[in-house]
């Protein structure tokens, strides 16, 4: 009856596949959010110019930046939601402990972030088709650089970015679960920190964005974003180890 032959790796594997089936609806929100972002992107950023050569040139710029940003926020919110009581209790419906539960959630988040990032990387094509359907005018593309290498690097960095923001959401959610006071305290602290740093001459958002998104070296970017993600997930992990299940 009693079995001591239980390996954490085995349980984590089972939990990841369980979470895949149990939380399948996260993709509903992913699709809805990406389609919404496509809708928002249809506006384009316009630039018109009439020059001396009797030409009125109007250029409408489109890109899927908005879709990517929406997807990054989706990662944040989804991870945040997974820390809420109902979802954590789903964890405890079957064999688990906090270590395996958190580990499997992180792996699960990595999987869904990869899927979301891959979808976002292709969403530019959808935008193109929709823009063409609306205007039926010739499309120009200015792909500063093309090629499989650039695509792969972009995709990896996008996935890492989504995963990192999911980590922020996961950590924030865990902190809130730990003490409900943080629902108010966390945003206040965050914005307060931003403002105080700003007034001290350090622009936090600029620092953060420069640190990561101005990094032109692909490998350095990977290391930086993984370091930031790890910090977030470790915080979440440490807190989850203290959380009880009060159902």
């Amino acid at each position: 009856m009693y079995s001591a032959d239980i390996s954490t790796a085995e349980v984590v594997k089972k939990q990841v596949s369980y979470k895949w089936r149990a939380y399948i609806s996260v993709f509903t929100s992913l699709v809805v959010i990406q389609l919404l972002a496509v809708l928002f992107s249809l506006n384009g950023t316009g630039m018109s110019s009439s020059g001396g050569m009797n030409y009125n040139i109007r250029v409408e710029y489109y890109n899927a930046d908005m879709i990517m940003i929406f997807t990054i926020f989706w990662g944040f919110i989804t991870a945040l939601l997974l820390t809420t009581k109902a979802y954590r209790e789903d964890d405890f419906a079957f064999v688990t402990n906090r270590t395996s539960g958190t580990l499997s959630t992180i792996i699960y988040l990595w999987i869904i972030c990869s899927i979301a990032g891959f979808a976002a990387s292709l969403s530019g094509y959808l935008l193109k088709v929709v823009v063409f359907l609306f205007t039926s005018q010739e499309l120009l593309s200015n792909n500063g650089a093309e090629g499989a290498g650039i695509y792969v690097m972009g995709l990896v960095s996008l996935i890492l970015t989504i995963f990192m923001f999911a980590g922020f959401g996961y950590a924030a959610g865990m902190i809130v679960q730990w003490n409900k006071m943080f629902v108010i305290l966390l945003p206040v602290l965050f914005i307060g920190l931003l403002i105080s740093l700003e007034s001290a001459g350090y622009s936090m958002d600029r620092f953060f964005f420069q640190f990561l998104f101005s990094e032109q070296n692909f490998w350095l970017f990977i290391m930086k974003s993984l370091a930031v993600s790890t910090a977030a997930y470790v915080i979440a992990f440490l807190i989850s180890n203290r959380l009880e299940v009060k159902r």
Binding site: Y55, V59, Y62, I150
Partner: peptide
């Protein structure tokens, strides 16, 4: 007279795809 109106729909690469390209 009658200036020529030119209208372009320009698609640019998204930020993850320009971050590491030297051209950008």
């Amino acid at each position: 007279e009658n200036p020529v109106d030119v209208h372009y729909q320009m698609f640019t690469s998204e930020f993850p795809f320009t971050q590491f390209s030297q051209n950008s």
